[in-house]
Design a protein around this nucleic acid. Structure first.
Lengths: 109, 109
DNA sequence: TACATTCGTTAGTGATAACTTACGGTAAGC
DNA sequence: GCTTACCGTAAGTTATCACTAACGAATGTA
């Protein structure tokens, strides 16, 4: 399982996306994130675990609290996956075009 | 439910990603996609339905067969979501910095 | 040391979704 | 017009996943 797979699977859940969006711009503790959401704190904790495994967030201990913040690496992984998909698609298209050209040349000769 | 939500949810499933990757560079029919995979043809058909709803693929009738190909719009949606996240994160960070500055000015005055 | 608070973990449950089998519909070929 | 091939859909089953509840660990405090 690649890192890109973990990122896509992590962002596939809507609740997890809401948790992730709550960390834009400022780091928050688990309780602060759960505050105002319609899910329990353990649920948020579990979602953060998945987001952490995907390198989408990082956590640091701050007394008894655990503060989470967005980590650039996860979104960079997603961006690289996106770019890589385009590159491979383009390469495959190029190969197909070349084979078609070769076939056409063989026909004309 | 936004389009970005549909894209992320569609790409969240590993089988669906394998189906999607099979369309890089060349369009294929449903049977061709299912050929060599460890899932049945109806399963592939259902996944393609979800991918189509997310604007990740397009389909065209070709006789009795139905040919699917990647559609740029879905991945563009994902890219926009990615960029938008960065923008909002940056804006939030900026606001926090400005508030901190304001507070600091108020203190010094 | 004893207590309180905060967070993480595990077990169990309920819901969602993915897979298979079976059926119906449509277009091409004889 | 009948047969064949290909695809989508529906029903049913299985499995996966997210949520709640309960317990345990660690830190800060009296």
């Amino acid at each position: 399982m690649t890192n890109a797979d973990r990122v896509l699977e992590a962002l596939g859940d809507p609740t997890r996306r809401r948790v992730f969006k709550r960390l834009r711009g400022c780091a928050r503790s688990v309780g602060e994130i759960a505050q105002g959401m319609d899910v329990s704190r353990p649920a948020v904790s579990q979602h953060l675990k998945v987001l952490k495994a995907a390198r989408l967030v990082v956590d640091r201990a701050e007394g008894t609290r655990r503060v989470y913040a967005v980590h650039a690496q996860g979104l960079e992984t997603l961006r690289n996956w996106l770019d890589g998909f385009w590159d491979e698609a383009l390469a495959a298209f190029k190969d197909a075009a070349e084979q078609a050209t070769k076939k056409h040349e063989g026909k004309s000769s």
